[in-house]
Design a protein around this nucleic acid. Structure first.
Lengths: 181, 181
DNA sequence: AAGTTTGTACAGTTTTTTCTGTACGAACTG
DNA sequence: CAGTTCGTACAGAAAAAACTGTACAAACTT
């Protein structure tokens, strides 16, 4: 095997495991692979280069890169004189990590807190209902208790997101020195 | 609408948003719904009860509940005199959260750190190769630099997992009081 | 303004995942 | 030990997701 083939193979191997990881986080295998390729590609890439390296269609590259952008794992990079859109993988893995989970958790909070409030309101008004049997009343009260605990959880999660977004998390769990293990 | 229908509806609504959240974390919608149902069901449930409440097959309940168990979102509960397996949703959402992400991240670390070491070894031995053009050598060195940064990231992530598993995270980001927002 | 190039919407196909019914082994019951 | 109940493996059907090619709009070039 030639030395350039060996390099190619080493990369491909690592890219495959990167892709597998990203699959755990809900990305499709191909998108994971695309990210891996971009991660090793030192220059910002065009859709056509991606197409060549992944062997997939340009349409897929377009939608894929957009998905990765939305997750901030990849971003557009402008270069003067170049008409095509250029994209590069986010170099800073700490930033990727923090951004990714902040986004995920924020979405969770937003989605659920809204519904929680609505459900709480419904249940509270239901307590006024004279038709309610004592048994049902207990049920409703139990549910309200559960929702209260849930609210506490979302409040906490919100604080956690703050710690991630502000970078305070790195005060609590510091980034290790170069040498450390 | 009768009061019990109203209760049913309020729950269903909240369950739907819970399910949607869990979908973000890679669970199928039905499994999310199953979890939601179990979350509101105060008594531990049998597969047959689940089947009735979800309207799905018992086979699905069996596989679903096992998936949820593996993620520690649900656990078996033994009750004397009851022959059927009983399952209940984990009540403590903080625990669920912490367990879920610890597991996820641990899997990521395990998977990638192994491959990282292997790739690093391959690239280092490639540096010895006399066939290597100067350009390729630069490439390899650049890649090794990337892997070094990646290693640092995994080390950090491991520390974060420790903070989650030990509960230290709650020292840094405390669980709010009942009243607080 | 006509001609290119570039990115994406959309419809249809392929692949993957989810779900069900059947079948069967293990654990219990009388 | 024969009969019952329970959970799950497995194969196939149904549903969902990923992927591609065509077509077209926007931006650029001459």
């Amino acid at each position: 095997m030639s030395s350039s083939e060996k390099l190619e193979q080493a990369r491909r191997h690592y890219i495959e495991s990167l892709a597998e990881t990203m699959e755990m986080y809900g990305l499709s295998p191909s998108m994971g692979r695309l990210f891996g390729i971009m991660f090793f590609h030192d220059e910002p890439m065009t859709l056509d280069e991606m197409r060549k390296l992944t062997g997939m269609s340009k349409t897929s590259m377009s939608t894929g890169v957009r998905a990765l952008s939305r997750l901030k794992l990849v971003h557009k990079k402008w270069q003067k004189g170049v008409r095509k859109d250029l994209y590069e993988a986010e170099h800073d893995q700490f930033r990727s990590f923090v951004d990714f989970f902040s986004q995920l958790w924020e979405k969770e909070i937003e989605l659920n807190q809204k519904n929680l409030t609505k459900t709480e309101r419904n249940l509270k008004s239901l307590l006024q209902d004279p038709e309610l049997t004592p048994e049902e009343r207990d049920q409703v009260e139990e549910d309200l208790e559960k929702l209260k605990r849930a609210r506490r959880y979302y409040t906490w999660l919100d604080h956690l997101v703050d710690a991630f977004e502000s970078g305070d998390i790195f005060k609590y769990v510091p980034i290790p020195d170069e040498e450390a293990d």
